[in-house]
Amino acid sequence: MADLPYSTALIVGAGAGISAALARALSAAGLRVGLAARDAAKLAPLAAETGALTFAADASDPAAVARLFAEADARLGEPEVVVFNPSARVPGPLAELDPEAVRRAMEVTAFGGFLVAQQAAKRMVPKGRGAILLTGATAGVKGFPRSAAFAMGKFALRGLAQSAARELWPQGIHVAHFVIDGGVRSERRPDRADRPDGTLTAEGVARSYLDVLRQPRDAWSMEVELRPWNEPF
């Protein structure tokens, strides 16, 4: 698996599930990996398993994101792959949503994506290479009832990905957006007995991320939809 054209990766919003599987896959491919989360202590087991470095940062805070990248530069090396995973949900009827909770969700899911992509671009543009991967969801393509805040954030993240790709691709930076269209299997979310293979596996999603990182410049993907084979769409 040591065929990726990159040597360092920073995963922002790391935790269990997709980001953990991605950390394992990137580490196995020979990359130096950094893991960032608001609570860096929770990342200790994954860091021990993968040899990754850990960083504490709030992705919605401009100063915190700037410090994160400065620290990553010093400890990890300037990240050549940056993955943005954070998101926030505020479920409930539109008329009853707390405006401040919605604002916070937007700051995490959308504004945080901008802050992370901006810091990544500042480092990648002078070198003319790199990859910025943004983790989206079905909600970034179609909004569902009682999920306005999540849809707003994911739609904005998808717009960021499209704009950044059109700007940065000609400068050698691969920007890609992943629509995770389905639930990701876990201990808390196992497959239903009456619907086997009804969820994605984190490992399968991670393999798709690495496949995108391997793409040649003459055949880059901007958006990739991932879903179980029996997911309706």
Rank of each mutant, 00 (worst) to 15 (best):
D3Q: 12
D3H: 11
L4C: 04
L4F: 03
P5G: 10
Y6L: 09
S7M: 03
A9S: 09
L10H: 07
V12M: 06
G13P: 12
A14F: 07
G15F: 10
A16W: 02
A28L: 05
A29R: 04
V33R: 08
G34I: 07
A36V: 05
A40G: 10
L43N: 07
T54M: 13
D58C: 12
A63N: 12
A74D: 13
R75Q: 07
P79Y: 02
V83Q: 09
S87P: 03
L94G: 00
A95Y: 04
E96W: 04
E96M: 06
P99Q: 03
P99H: 00
E100N: 08
A101P: 06
V102D: 00
V102F: 02
E107S: 06
T109Y: 00
F111Q: 13
F114I: 14
F114C: 09
V116I: 08
A120M: 10
P126H: 11
K127P: 08
K127M: 12
L133N: 11
L133H: 12
L134I: 03
T138R: 14
T138V: 00
G143N: 01
P145V: 02
L157Q: 05
R158M: 02
S163K: 07
S163V: 15
L168R: 09
W169I: 10
Q171P: 07
H177D: 03
I180Q: 03
D181G: 05
G182M: 01
G182N: 03
G183Y: 00
R185C: 01
R189C: 04
P190S: 04
P190A: 02
A193M: 02
R195G: 01
T199M: 14
T199A: 11
L200Y: 11
T201E: 06
Y209K: 12
Y209L: 12
L210M: 11
D211H: 13
D218G: 10
D218L: 10
M222K: 15
E223R: 12
E225I: 05
E225Y: 01
E225K: 09
R227Y: 05
F233V: 12
F233T: 10
